[in-house]
């Protein structure tokens, strides 16, 4: 027997003697590049190696976009009720509690007011980590209030979408949030205030079919999944495999639904440029 063969199989170190490596020092992109987290943070969470856009949360977007990361949050503690007493294998109320605990958020969207290069703006940003960034009553209400605030103060509105779609657990109430948010957006149009929609990975379902593609300007991050129906559903329905690059930002731009694809590192500059020319 060769000397290098293990005589005993399996891992023998007991669990309590296991050495933990500190987490979060490195990020591995899908193409296999390893990037230092600190380098990533300084580059707006875009991998300098291959341009991969790491999924980030409202916290990071606010840091990246607002001057010096300064903003104040409005409507922070709007929380979901359970309008239809939903229960699948978990209760909806329990899901919300868990999500709150896990993410330290109150729901899947936050609204911040601050400045971009000295220009007053309102930014609402969705959080995918909260029940898949799903849109329920709270998301609808917070967008509605943010738009109202924009109309009153005449501030431009920036909405960053990152969502799996409408929140099933609120059934028709979440469906109606599509209509609710759009009703408000028509008022924003009447007030002639710019609305910039930023689509990030992923933006699907009821969000795509409501406010996400209705911006005066639609900006997408590179390589994001954007679509109405989910790729799996389409595949199952038509029984064919999907073309490469289907439902990506680039696909949507090619078909005429996105004004511009912007790297996250350029996002602030692009938003400022556009808004300052429109106002």
């Amino acid at each position: 027997m060769a000397w290098f063969l293990r005589k005993k199989k399996n891992i023998l170190t007991p669990v309590d003697k296991k050495k933990d490596l500190p987490k979060g020092l490195w990020h591995r992109t899908p193409s296999g590049k390893i990037v230092d987290i600190e380098v990533l943070r300084k580059n707006s969470y875009v991998s300098p190696e291959d341009g991969y856009h790491v999924r980030i949360h409202s916290k990071e977007y606010f840091e990246i976009l607002f001057d010096n990361g300064n903003f104040f949050e409005i409507d922070k503690k709007v929380i979901s009720k359970d309008p239809i007493k939903w229960e699948d294998y978990k209760k909806y109320t329990d899901r919300i509690k868990e999500a709150k605990k896990k993410t330290n958020l109150y729901d899947a969207i936050r609204t911040g007011i601050g400045k971009i290069k000295g220009l007053d703006v309102v930014i609402s940003c969705m959080d995918f980590s909260f029940i898949g960034g799903s849109m329920g009553s709270v998301v609808g209400e917070k967008i509605s209030r943010a738009v109202k605030y924009c109309i009153e103060k005449r501030f431009p509105y920036i909405l960053i979408s990152k969502s799996g779609g409408a929140r099933i657990m609120e059934s028709s109430f979440s469906l109606m949030q599509m209509a609710k948010t759009i009703a408000r957006l028509t008022q924003l149009r009447d007030s002639k205030i710019p609305y910039i929609s930023v689509l990030t990975d992923p933006t699907t379902g009821g969000v795509t079919a409501s406010y996400a593609l209705l911006g005066d300007i639609n900006i997408a991050e590179p390589g994001a999944l954007i679509g109405f129906a989910g790729p799996r559903v389409i595949k199952e329905t038509i029984g064919k495999s999907l073309p490469e690059g289907f439902q990506t930002s680039e696909f949507l731009m090619d078909h005429g639904f996105i004004d511009l694809i912007s790297s996250r590192t350029e996002l602030k500059k692009n938003i400022y440029n556009l808004v300052s020319m429109m106002m």
Binding site: A179, I182, T186, A209, L213, F228, V233, T237, I238, F246
Partner: peptide
């Protein structure tokens, strides 16, 4: 709405959103 490749190419989401917007 139909979940298909062509439907996505031609902007199923945008079409629905736009209708809601205009019907308002």
């Amino acid at each position: 709405a139909f979940p298909g490749i062509e439907a996505e190419m031609r902007g199923q989401g945008e079409a629905i959103g736009k209708n809601i917007y205009e019907m308002m």
